[in-house]
């Protein structure tokens, strides 16, 4: 039973590491702040929530940790739940503030019903 948990957990950690790298690359290549929100969401959900769940599963099956492994698994699941709830809320608050404070104009924009002046139609590309 513990073998299965360890293999599933390691697969999740690997998946999380790869998606973390993809999100970091996306964060650098996307043109505009609003596009980078997508990269940030991938980075936080697939890059943080999934590895923490994987690490918690590995912790459950990992003998050398002794009985502390239940502590690590429990704290890991709590951390994963927190990341799942806090990350989208935080980035959404940041995006709302950026749009209302007019810091970043919507570059590749088709329609911006919140504030038409922020929309730059036919942006650079």
């Amino acid at each position: 039973m513990t073998e299965v948990l360890i293999y599933i957990g390691l697969a999740l950690i690997g998946l999380g590491a790869v998606s973390d790298l993809i999100a970091a690359i996306g964060m650098n290549r996307f043109k505009n702040f609003y596009l980078r929100l997508h990269a940030a969401t991938i980075g936080t959900i697939w890059g943080a929530f999934v590895p923490i769940i994987g690490a918690s599963l590995v912790a459950i099956g990992y003998e050398p940790l002794g009985y502390y492994r239940w502590f690590v698994a429990g704290a890991g699941f709590v951390a994963a739940l927190l990341v799942l709830i806090l990350a989208p809320a935080g980035s959404h608050a940041l995006a709302r503030a950026t749009h209302r404070a007019r810091i970043v104009r919507v570059e590749p924009c088709i329609a911006d019903h919140l504030d038409e002046t922020m929309c730059i139609k036919g942006g650079s590309e």
């Binding site: 999380g16 940030a40 690490a55 990341v83 980035s91 940041l94």
Partner: peptide, 19 residues
């Protein structure tokens, strides 16, 4: 946004390191 996304991944990295 970059620091925010990175630090959530640092938190995940911490859990992996703790194992």
């Amino acid at each position: 946004l970059a620091i925010d996304a990175m630090t959530y991944d640092v938190a995940a990295f911490l859990v992996v390191l703790s194992i």
